[in-house]
């Protein structure tokens, strides 16, 4: 079992969460070329090692999180709220 330390709820089993995907994708502007959109939607780095990825605490607070996790050892380095403003709120409340 992977344990994810949700900034809102505390440390929980990963079975409470659902995996989203690569958290580093920047979607291009609406008038960007087909090539850029194809790259953003379909193509992935598929990192072997530490990556930033999204998880949804779907059976908990239902917030989206950015988790820094190794795809080889499953070790987690950091967990933050997805939204940058919520990140600030969480940090200010520490």
């Amino acid at each position: 079992m992977i344990r994810i330390n949700c900034p809102y709820c505390g440390e929980r089993d990963h079975s409470e969460f659902s995996y989203g995907g690569d958290a580093t994708i920047n979607y291009p502007s609406l008038d960007a070329s087909e090539k850029e959109w194809t790259e953003a939607i379909f193509f992935r780095k598929n990192i072997k090692g530490y990556q930033f990825e999204t998880w949804h605490h779907s059976n908990g607070c239902r917030m989206w999180l950015v988790v820094e996790r190794s795809t080889v050892t499953h070790e987690i380095k950091s967990v933050k709220p997805c939204h940058p403003n919520l990140q600030k709120v969480v940090e200010n409340n520490k």
Binding site: I2, H14, N46
Partner: peptide, 9 residues
Amino acid sequence: YKSYAQRGN
């Protein structure tokens, strides 16, 4: 979840 580990959870 994405993983390169050859062991199940």
